[in-house]
Write a protein that binds this DNA or RNA. Structure first.
Lengths: 203, 203
DNA sequence: TAATTGAATACTTTAATAATATGTTCAATT
DNA sequence: AATTGAACATATTATTAAAGTATTCAATTA
């Protein structure tokens, strides 16, 4: 059964086209052509155009999330993981134009305030990565005790806010520097005081 | 010359109507009637409808900002000021339905990512309030050294993000709790370690 | 002179309709 | 199981007329 492989090829084609033309101006005929089939056959894989779109976005978000999950296995220090996650996530977005374009065309995907979050399942898993890092940090005594659910959601929302600022709307360098400052504050806010040997405290 | 008083009456009327019906569905005839004059006369006070709208929003934002500036004079501790600013700002928005409605009808006012920020001057002054608090904190040695411009902008953006989540889109209680957690982290991230007498550290 | 009016004008939105394009179904085919 | 292509249903665009609203301005008022 090669249905799944074919389906992913369709998503790949749709990702490119939806990103380039947006939902409305992308026709099923275009998608079918790009995927090497006729439009009728697309209905063998998805319910309708809306379903194709949502599955395509889901496909792209999942790849992103998987890439993030992979990128932090090696490290051990929760604080390093936290910072690495921020950097890698940004790097991924900067390298994937299709995804960026989709986010430009449909700002509701990562809406600041999702009315009904169509991709809550994928986002939930992304938050879980953060959540896991926080739990490790708290257990190891590196992080302050906290409500990890709420903090994960807070960090995630700030995160998305700035990823979009920097890579989707191109507010560029300044936003990036603002984000870095925010990251510093978050890191200090999460961590308990560093051992006894402080880095420069007077007396 | 009572031109300025009359002008403010027009803004007050326009604020109510733009909030209730939005920009497009509010007619100058309505605004004129609410302000007790005919529509032709409105052009004595503003250039055109667009100008009326922008000045009206500016008027509302300025009032908000002034109220914030007033509310923090009494306190002395920069940290308390910072937290107080957050609370008062939220309180103000919760009490001013007109402003909330305007923000609902026109999300670009506090756009997460202002393409061209039409109200940058007002927002700039709001950021300055934050900036001043940060400078005091750093000078008194309560806060870590930092790039105050960047940090002020970071805090402002997170601030707006959550004010909108809670009071504009009614994401209600949960967002409020998330914001409180974020506030805790920000406070810890800004402040240097508390003296020698820590509140519960072992040994 | 500053402030206001009301009617004339210019501009935009709405409504209705036809023409076109695109989404969807499905029996037949590979 | 996977794919096609034609038939059908639905949505988008284009056109135009009607209605509504923004804008201007010479005349009027305080």
């Amino acid at each position: 059964m090669k249905k799944n492989r074919k389906r992913q090829e369709i998503f790949q084609a749709a990702l490119w086209l939806f990103g380039r033309f947006g939902f409305k101006k992308t026709s099923l005929e275009q998608v079918a052509a790009e995927a090497g089939m006729t439009k009728g056959n697309i209905y063998f894989y998805v319910r309708d155009k809306q379903d194709l779109y949502e599955q395509t976005v889901r496909f792209a978000l999942s790849q992103w999330r998987d890439s993030m999950a992979d990128s932090i296995i090696q490290d051990t220090d929760p604080l390093e993981k936290f910072v690495l996650l921020a950097r890698r996530s940004a790097e991924y977005l900067s390298q994937h134009e299709d995804l960026r374009n989709i986010l430009i065309n449909d700002p509701t995907i990562f809406s600041v305030t999702p009315r009904e979050d169509r991709f809550s399942d994928v986002n939930e898993e992304a938050k879980n990565i953060l959540h896991t890092i926080l739990r490790e940090g708290v257990q190891e005594g590196r992080f302050h005790p906290m409500d990890m659910d709420l903090v994960a959601e807070f960090l995630f929302s700030v995160y998305i806010l700035y990823l979009i600022k920097v890579y989707v709307k191109s507010e560029g360098l300044r936003s990036l520097r603002i984000f870095e400052e925010g990251l510093k504050i978050a890191v200090r806010g999460l961590c308990r005081e560093v051992e006894k040997s402080s880095d420069g405290s007077p007396a």
